[in-house]
Amino acid sequence: MDEEYDVIVLGTGLTECILSGIMSVNGKKVLHMDRNPYYGGESSSITPLEELYKRFQLLEGPPESMGRGRDWNVDLIPKFLMANGQLVKMLLYTEVTRYLDFKVVEGSFVYKGGKIYKVPSTETEALASNLMGMFEKRRFRKFLVFVANFDENDPKTFEGVDPQTTSMRDVYRKFDLGQDVIDFTGHALALYRTDDYLDQPCLETVNRIKLYSESLARYGKSPYLYPLYGLGELPQGFARLSAIYGGTYMLNKPVDDIIMENGKVVGVKSEGEVARCKQLICDPSYIPDRVRKAGQVIRIICILSHPIKNTNDANSCQIIIPQNQVNRKSDIYVCMISYAHNVAAQGKYIAIASTTVETTDPEKEVEPALELLEPIDQKFVAISDLYEPIDDGCESQVFCSCSYDATTHFETTCNDIKDIYKRMAGTAFDFENMKRKQNDVFGEAEQ
């Protein structure tokens, strides 16, 4: 370990593993360490099931009705991949897709007046949907046509809207959309967690709705994908990429100290040895004095023996409960997957309800979601602090990732990755940087 590296990475969460992969592909010498004996950090999948019970201090362990412990891979952080989103792009560019198998999530649902409705995925579904009345549908269709044709580089498509100054509230007004449709559009399509976006320039919202539609167009059922064997497969896929390009991995490796000289990182000390480096990437748990708390998320993992009611017996789905429907500031989400994804025993389902904490009784906040899941065989409640770095790391060369937020997709995580890359490399992130180099010394032969 007593060696000189360009970059040392602490923690094998998804953000850290993707950055480690990119740095290795770009010719950097990388050492990647984790104090845990497993990959994934906060974003790991726990197996066998006995391990999950232990982690949540349920000492009696799983009953026999849960089947074989080894058949379970339970995500600690519930997220899906947008089919046309940035993480899929990263997987394709790096060819990490060859280590993973994905399934399309069967449906996306939205909560309205105590019931759940399928988010329409085709024009026919939209016309048949009970989510809105006849005239509302016509106006909504006009709005969707506007979004589909919108091109930020072609003012002819703006229809009198200025993407940089017109607020989204004004765009909704222009198409005369009612409150329910606005809730549905902002939260189930643009996937905002709160209503803060309404008074911001509309460009980002329009682009988010386009991303949803384009992702949906790829597979038809929903815009989301999920990897077989759980999300823990993602960091491992990128760790393989890093290793192929010469990255060194050490799990179960305690970090005793991060060594600084004149305010700059110069190395990491572990078990009496020092590895030197020019730059350091880590998750917040490794540098508690360089991060601040930015809120909390509650996630309740529920094991069920039945599909969720009114989802047409889907073996995977997402449910969004827009905040307006339950008098909150932030949406509540449910991600459900099952034995069909090799993450649970035969006939079992895993539904994870999550939201940003707003009160001193977080469990009560998630109740509307839990009511949709009854009866629940077993619950595991996790309340996590969200951390963000206190500075950009440019001076110390210590670059810290943000905690995983309450969103049900990876777009915010990818933004964090691109942002850290830019601060480390001094140049904007470009997907081309992730391409495997042809015929290089570490390149794998085609399968």
Rank of each mutant, 00 (worst) to 15 (best):
E4K: 04
D6R: 01
L10R: 03
L14R: 02
T15A: 10
C17R: 01
C17Q: 11
S20F: 06
I22A: 06
G27C: 10
K28Q: 14
V30G: 03
D34H: 01
R35C: 08
R35G: 09
Y38A: 01
G40W: 03
G41V: 01
E42V: 09
S43N: 07
S44P: 09
I46F: 06
E50V: 13
R55S: 06
R55H: 09
L58S: 11
E60Q: 07
S65K: 12
S65W: 12
L76R: 12
I77L: 07
M82A: 03
M82V: 06
M82W: 12
Q86W: 04
K89G: 02
L92I: 01
E95W: 09
R98P: 08
K103N: 08
V105M: 09
V105A: 08
Y111C: 11
K112F: 02
G114E: 10
K118E: 03
V119E: 06
N130T: 00
M134A: 05
F135A: 01
R138P: 09
K142L: 00
F143L: 07
L144H: 12
V145F: 05
V147I: 08
E152H: 14
E159K: 13
Q164W: 08
S167G: 09
S167I: 05
S167A: 01
S167P: 14
D170Y: 10
D180K: 01
D183C: 11
G186A: 08
Y192Q: 15
D195Y: 06
D199H: 12
D199N: 09
Q200R: 09
P201L: 08
E204W: 14
V206F: 11
N207E: 15
K210S: 12
Y212Q: 00
L216P: 01
L216I: 09
K221E: 10
P223L: 03
Y226H: 07
L228V: 11
G232H: 15
A239R: 14
Y245C: 12
G246S: 07
L251I: 14
N252K: 06
K253N: 01
D257I: 15
K264T: 05
V265L: 08
K269F: 01
E273R: 04
L280S: 00
P284L: 03
R290G: 15
V291A: 10
R292I: 12
K293E: 09
K293W: 14
I298C: 05
I300H: 02
T311K: 10
Q325R: 10
N327R: 13
S330C: 01
D331K: 12
K348W: 14
Y349K: 15
I350M: 06
A351F: 07
T355D: 15
V357A: 09
T360L: 15
D361V: 12
P362H: 00
E367G: 12
P368M: 13
A369P: 00
L373K: 14
Q378P: 02
S384I: 06
L386T: 14
E395S: 14
Q397Y: 15
F399S: 02
D405L: 04
A406C: 15
T407V: 15
T408M: 00
I420G: 03
I420R: 15
Y421C: 10
K422A: 14
A425E: 14
G426N: 15
A428Y: 14
A428S: 06
F431M: 15
F431D: 04
E432F: 09
N433T: 12
D440F: 15
E444Y: 01
E444L: 01
E444R: 14
A445R: 12
